[in-house]
Design a protein around this nucleic acid. Structure first.
Lengths: 337, 337
DNA sequence: CTGAAAGCGCTTACAG
DNA sequence: CTGAAAGCGCTTACAG
C-alpha cells in the first residue's frame, strides 16, 4: 500500500541501509548518494512508518502524562505547556486521567500506557513511593508535584511552603488575623496541601498570631468544595477575616459563596488562592494568588525526562528541581486592606 | 527481554496461533487449551506488545484530537470527556494543539500524527473543506464544531443558531433592548461565531427590535478579548443594557471589565455567555449561559468515529449530528431583570 | 562509505 | 479446533 523504504531504495538504486542512513542523518554518506535518496523520497512521497520504527528501536517518542483530571484549569494549563515543550523537542504527550484512582495509577506505571511511552511524567495522588519503586521498570519517570519526595525519584515541583508563607504574610500585613484555610488534607503531610498548610503555620508563628484549628477546613480541591467549605464555616459561626484557598478554584468557589451571602470581598473578608490560573486575573474581584512558575515547571520537567530517556543525564542521582514563585497581588486581597 | 507470545506458547505447549486465538477471544478454543494458555500468561506475566500488534494489524487503537488550545476551558472540558468516552471503548486519545495554525492542521491530516491514530476528531479553524478533502486519505475523520458543514464529512455539532436565538429571546424577555455581541468574526459565516450571531439577529427580528451594527464587537475568543471589547464599547460611548459573549470566557472577561468600571451586573447591564463551562456556575454573579450538550457531543462523536473505524457504519453517507442544548438562567441575566 | 541478512513481536491467511 | 509459515516496515550489527 504505502511507499516503503524498499521502494525508495529501488528508485534510488541503493540498498535499504543507505536509505536508513540518510533518514537517520548518518554522517558519512557521499553527497551524490544522499541527494539521489532524498530525490526518491520526495518523488515517491515516502513517509517513515513510525510503528515499524518503534518496534525495531524500542522507542516511541511519546511521553506519558498521568494526572487526575484534565478539565481542572491548573492541569489543563500545565498539560498544554508540557505538550508544547515536548513538541519543540520532537516528542508527543499522551495523557492519562487517573481520577485519583489508585488502580489507574498502577496501570500507568506498568501496563500498556507505559509500553506506549518512552518516559512518564507522573502526579501520584494515591500510591506511595514504595509501590512506585516496586513497579517502576527501567523507563525513566519524573514526578510532578510533591506528593512524594523520595531520593529514588526525579521530581520537579514548586516552592509550596515558601510561597504559602509569603502569601499568608501578605494577608497578615494587610491586618488580617483570622485566616481560614480551605482545602486542607489532614491525612497527608508531604502533599501540596500539607506543604502549603505548613507555610501558613510558619507565617503565623513568625507574626506571633496563634493557630486556630477551627479555621482549617478540609476538603477536596474542586470549585464546589470551596463554596461548601465557606458555607460550613459561616453556618458554624466561625469568625474569619480572610480565606486562603489552597488552590485557585477553591478560592474562587469560596469567593462566590461569600459574595452570594453578601459578605464583601475584600472589605469583610480577603480571599487568596494558589496557582494563578488564567481565570484568577479576570475574576471579580480579581484574585490575589501565587504564580508557581508553571512555564518553568513544564520546561524543566520535559527537559529532564527527555535527558533521561536519551541518556544525557547521569544515572544514580535523582534530581529535585524547585521552580521559583511570585506573589500576584490583586483586588481580592490588596496590599493595604 | 520481555516475555513474548513465543514464551507463552512454549510454556503452555501450544502453537503461537493458539496463544493469539486466546488473546483475541477467538470462539472455538477447547476450554482446557484456553485455560492452559491463560495460566501460562498469568505465570509469566505476559503483556502483549502493542507496537508489534499495530505494525501487523495496521491499527493503533488511538484517536487523534486536533483543537486550537487545550488550556481553553471549553476545550479542556471537552477533551477530558472525549478521553473518558474513548477509554470506555478501549481507545486512547492523542491531542494535537493547532494554535489555529493552518500548517499544523494540514500536518495533522496526513503526517505522522495521522499515522499514529486510527481516526481523527478535528476542529478545523483555518483550512477549508476542499483542502481537507484533498489530503484526507482513507482513515475516518469526524469534524467537531461548525466551521465546515459539508456533505463529504461526518460532523458532530451543537445547535448554535437555535441556542443563541433562545438566549437572545431570554434577554429580550427581561426587557433588554440594546444587546451588545462580543466575539463576532465578520469574515466567517459558517463558524460558531457566525451561526450564533445569526441566531441573535433572528431573535431580534422576531421581537421587532432593530439590529444595530454598532453593538457588534469583533474579536478573538479569549478572556482578555472580552474585557477589551467591552472597554472599547464603553469608551466609544455606545449604549447597551446587555452583553452576549459568544462564548463563556468572553462573557466573563466582559463582566469583569463592567464590574471594574462600576457598572452593576445585571441591574445596569445583563451578561450572558455560551458553553456552560464549570466556571460559569461559580462566577460572581453566576453566569447565564447556554449548555450545549457537551456530554452528548463527546459521547456521539467518539461513538461515530469508532463505528467508522470498525466498519460498523455504512459508508457513503456522512452523518450530521446536532446535540441538544439547554438555557442556564443564572444571576448575570435572571428571568426578570 | 555501502550492502545483505537477521529480527523486533505480533496477526493472518492457509492447511489440515 | 490447532499448527507452520509468511510478513508488517523498519534498524542494527556485521562485513567488506
Amino acid at each position: 500500500m504505502a511507499v516503503t523504504m524498499n521502494d525508495v531504495a529501488r528508485a534510488a538504486g541503493v540498498s535499504l541501509k543507505t536509505v536508513s542512513n540518510v533518514l537517520n542523518d548518518y554522517e558519512f554518506i557521499r553527497p551524490a548518494t544522499k541527494k539521489r535518496v532524498q530525490d526518491a523520497i520526495a518523488e515517491l512521497g515516502y513517509e517513515a512508518n513510525l510503528t515499524a520504527r518503534s518496534l525495531r528501536s524500542g522507542k516511541t517518542r511519546m511521553l506519558g502524562l498521568v494526572l487526575s483530571d484534565l478539565s481542572a484549569p491548573y492541569y489543563a494549563e500545565l498539560a498544554s505547556r508540557l505538550m508544547k515543550a515536548a513538541s519543540r523537542r520532537g516528542y508527543r504527550v499522551l495523557v492519562e486521567q487517573s481520577d485519583a484512582a489508585g488502580e489507574v495509577e498502577l496501570n500507568a506505571l506498568q501496563g500498556p500506557f507505559r509500553q506506549l511511552t518512552d518516559g512518564l511524567l507522573f502526579t501520584p495522588l494515591v500510591i506511595d513511593a514504595d509501590t512506585i519503586a516496586a513497579r517502576l521498570g527501567k523507563k525513566p519517570l519524573v514526578l510532578l508535584g510533591e506528593h512524594i519526595l523520595d531520593p529514588r525519584f526525579d521530581l520537579v515541583t514548586m516552592k509550596n511552603g515558601e510561597a504559602a508563607a509569603a502569601l499568608t504574610a501578605h494577608l497578615l500585613a494587610g491586618g488580617r488575623r483570622r485566616i481560614a484555610v480551605i482545602g486542607a488534607h489532614p491525612d497527608e503531610s508531604a502533599g501540596s496541601a500539607g506543604l502549603r498548610l505548613n507555610g501558613y503555620r510558619k507565617a503565623l508563628d513568625e507574626a506571633g498570631v496563634p493557630f486556630d484549628p477551627a479555621l482549617i477546613a478540609p476538603c477536596d480541591w474542586r470549585r464546589d468544595n470551596g463554596a461548601a467549605a465557606v458555607a460550613g464555616l459561616l453556618d458554624g459561626g466561625v469568625e474569619f477575616d480572610a480565606v486562603f484557598g489552597l488552590n485557585d478554584v477553591l478560592a474562587l468557589g469560596a469567593m462566590h459563596e461569600l459574595l452570594i451571602r453578601g459578605v464583601h470581598v475584600p472589605r469583610d473578608v480577603a480571599v487568596a488562592g494558589f496557582d494563578d490560573i488564567d481565570e484568577a486575573r479576570f475574576a471579580s474581584p480579581s484574585l490575589t494568588t501565587v504564580s508557581p512558575g508553571m512555564e518553568e515547571i513544564a520546561e524543566r520537567s520535559i527537559g529532564l525526562l527527555i535527558d533521561r530517556i536519551e541518556g544525557r543525564e547521569a544515572e544514580g542521582q535523582a534530581a529535585h528541581i524547585e521552580a521559583g514563585f511570585q506573589l500576584e497581588v490583586r483586588e481580592s486581597a490588596p496590599q493595604v486592606s
